[in-house]
């Protein structure tokens, strides 16, 4: 049961970690690195609360072995939160009540980020399509969709 050293870029910084075989990115982030914005709602790829970006693409960190991201760029909510302040997407989620219990929120924001990076002016249907893998049991989704529309307006075509 030999652990392995894996090197990758996490939130813009190159890091080296020692992981047991088949350790997931979710477990690494949460239990080894203490980055708990990435949630563990189901560990089955079913809820989207653990969504991280790998080279900008949303992935379920609960299904992703750390060794598979060797040399890649992984981004979590911690990585897009400026200090001090909030990312525009965080701002609009906060101001538009696109949050209730807060458990799905990090995953929702990461998917929104990936969407707006690709498509600065998404239509309502495109937003819904991007969010289909992310469950929210509280809000009924409407405030989340509206928040992303508002984020697109505020960014005015400028992602990041």
């Amino acid at each position: 049961m030999a652990s392995k050293i894996v090197t990758f870029t996490l939130n813009g910084r190159r890091i080296e970690v020692l992981v047991k075989p088949l350790t997931t990115v979710q477990t690494l982030l949460r239990d080894q690195l203490g980055l708990t914005s990435t949630k563990a709602g189901c560990k089955q790829g079913g809820c989207g609360s653990c969504t991280v970006l790998v080279n900008g693409d949303p992935m379920m960190s609960c299904l992703l072995p750390v060794e598979d991201v060797q040399g890649q760029e992984v981004t979590t909510l911690e990585g897009i939160t400026p200090t001090p302040g909030l990312h525009i997407i965080q701002e609009v989620f906060y101001e538009n009540f696109a949050i209730q219990c807060g458990y799905c929120t990090p995953g929702m924001i990461m998917v929104s980020k990936a969407l707006l990076d690709r498509n600065p002016h998404p239509g309502r249907e495109e937003i819904i399509d991007a969010l289909t893998g992310n469950y929210c049991r509280c809000t009924g989704y409407e405030p989340i969709i509206q928040a992303i529309e508002e984020a697109a307006r505020r960014m005015n075509g400028n992602g990041n």
Binding site: G48, T51, V54, P58, V111, A114, A130, L131, G133
Partner: peptide
């Protein structure tokens, strides 16, 4: 199939 993240995997 699935949602966006699942299709990426």
């Amino acid at each position: 199939v699935g949602g966006w993240a699942i299709r990426n995997m």
